Deep mutational scan, measured.
Amino acid sequence: DLSGKLIIKAQLGEDIRRIPIHNEDITYDELVLMMQRVFRGKLLSNDEVTIKYKDEDGDLITIFDSSDLSFAIQCSRILKLTLFVNG
């Protein structure tokens, strides 16, 4: 049953990962930690990372904090994230 699940599709460069999320109350910090685990070796804990999501118009919107993240989650059951490393 995928109805209650949130799917995160995260892209870093050419690498795209699909991550099912069971807890929608994820904070921004938890998201960043999850991305560091998912992209281990490509995304380091001291990297400056910018996370953006695609909205319904196809625009890339920056996620700065947990309220941005929860808004993005409300918009779509499949959250398409693009990561930019400013390392």
Rank of each mutant, 00 (worst) to 15 (best):
D1A: 03
S3R: 05
S3N: 11
G4W: 06
G4F: 12
K5E: 14
K5N: 13
L6S: 08
L6H: 12
I8R: 00
I8F: 03
I8G: 01
I8C: 05
I8T: 01
I8E: 00
K9W: 12
K9D: 15
K9M: 15
K9Q: 15
A10E: 03
A10H: 01
Q11Y: 03
Q11V: 07
L12I: 05
L12A: 00
G13A: 05
G13H: 05
G13C: 04
E14A: 14
D15A: 14
D15H: 15
D15I: 14
D15C: 15
I16D: 03
I16A: 11
I16F: 11
I16P: 01
R17K: 15
R17A: 13
R18K: 13
R18Q: 15
R18A: 14
R18P: 15
I19P: 00
I19L: 09
P20K: 11
I21M: 07
I21D: 03
H22L: 10
N23D: 11
E24M: 12
E24Q: 08
E24V: 12
I26D: 00
I26W: 02
I26V: 10
T27N: 10
T27K: 09
T27D: 09
Y28G: 01
Y28W: 03
D29N: 07
D29E: 08
D29C: 07
E30A: 10
E30L: 04
E30D: 11
L31M: 09
V32S: 04
V32P: 01
L33G: 08
L33Y: 08
L33H: 08
L33S: 10
L33I: 10
M34E: 12
M35S: 02
M35N: 00
M35D: 00
M35G: 01
M35Q: 01
Q36A: 09
Q36D: 04
Q36P: 04
R37H: 12
V38L: 13
F39R: 01
F39H: 01
F39T: 01
F39V: 02
R40A: 12
G41C: 04
G41M: 09
K42C: 07
K42E: 11
K42V: 10
K42G: 05
K42H: 08
L43G: 03
L43S: 02
L44C: 07
L44I: 04
S45D: 11
S45R: 12
N46V: 11
D47Y: 03
I51W: 00
I51E: 00
I51H: 02
K52W: 05
K52E: 03
K52S: 12
K52F: 04
K52G: 04
Y53S: 03
Y53Q: 04
Y53I: 03
Y53M: 06
Y53K: 05
Y53A: 05
Y53L: 04
K54I: 08
K54R: 11
K54C: 13
D55Q: 14
D55I: 05
D55F: 05
D55L: 08
E56S: 13
E56V: 10
E56T: 15
E56N: 13
D57R: 15
D57Y: 14
G58H: 03
L60G: 04
I61V: 12
T62N: 13
T62P: 14
T62L: 01
T62W: 04
F64S: 14
F64D: 06
F64M: 14
F64C: 09
S66W: 01
S66T: 12
S66R: 02
S66N: 10
S67N: 14
S67V: 13
S67T: 12
D68L: 02
L69P: 00
L69D: 00
F71L: 14
F71N: 14
A72N: 01
I73W: 08
I73Q: 03
Q74V: 03
Q74F: 03
C75Y: 06
C75E: 12
C75M: 15
S76W: 05
S76I: 04
S76Y: 03
S76H: 08
R77C: 06
R77M: 04
R77E: 14
I78H: 13
L79D: 07
L79F: 04
L79Q: 06
L79A: 06
L79K: 13
K80C: 15
K80F: 09
L81H: 01
L81M: 10
L81V: 05
T82E: 15
T82C: 12
T82K: 14
L83C: 04
L83E: 00
L83D: 00
L83P: 01
L83I: 10
F84V: 14
F84L: 08
N86H: 10
N86T: 10
N86E: 06
N86C: 08
G87E: 11
G87D: 11
G87K: 13
